[in-house]
């Protein structure tokens, strides 16, 4: 069993934070729905990273368990999301998220 690297926890969490914010930027700024879904994946991955860092900080397996659950969620979400993208493409003939605004008031 190899030895893990000893890094200040805030560096790991900072990395996770940066990745999360970049993903958030992608969600807010991109109009193509594919890129929005990609950015969501980035955000989920950042959360997983944060969990792994926390688990390593305590020396417990809980972090990795949580990461697995996040992975499961991401998988299910992507499946449904991409299915919706396909249907939306057939209906609206476009991948522009701004076109799907019929629920506005």
């Amino acid at each position: 069993m190899m030895e893990a690297v000893v890094v200040p926890m805030e560096h790991g969490l900072l990395l996770a934070g940066f990745l999360f914010v970049i993903g958030l930027l992608g969600v807010m700024a991109r109009r193509n729905v594919i890129f929005i879904l990609m950015s969501l994946e980035i955000m989920l991955n950042a959360c997983g990273l944060a969990f792994i860092v926390a688990g390593s900080a305590h020396g417990e397996a809980d972090g990795q368990v949580m990461f697995m659950i996040i992975l499961t969620i991401a998988a299910a979400e992507v499946v449904v999301g991409l299915g919706l993208v396909l249907q939306a493409r057939r209906r609206f003939r476009t991948l522009d998220i701004d076109q799907a605004s019929q629920l506005g008031g």
Binding site: M28, D98, A100, G104
Partner: peptide
């Protein structure tokens, strides 16, 4: 206030952030 209900996903995400 009804103006905030634009139906735009990115607007909602922006307001949430």
């Amino acid at each position: 206030l009804a103006l905030t209900q634009s139906g735009q996903l990115r607007w909602y995400a922006g307001t949430m952030v």
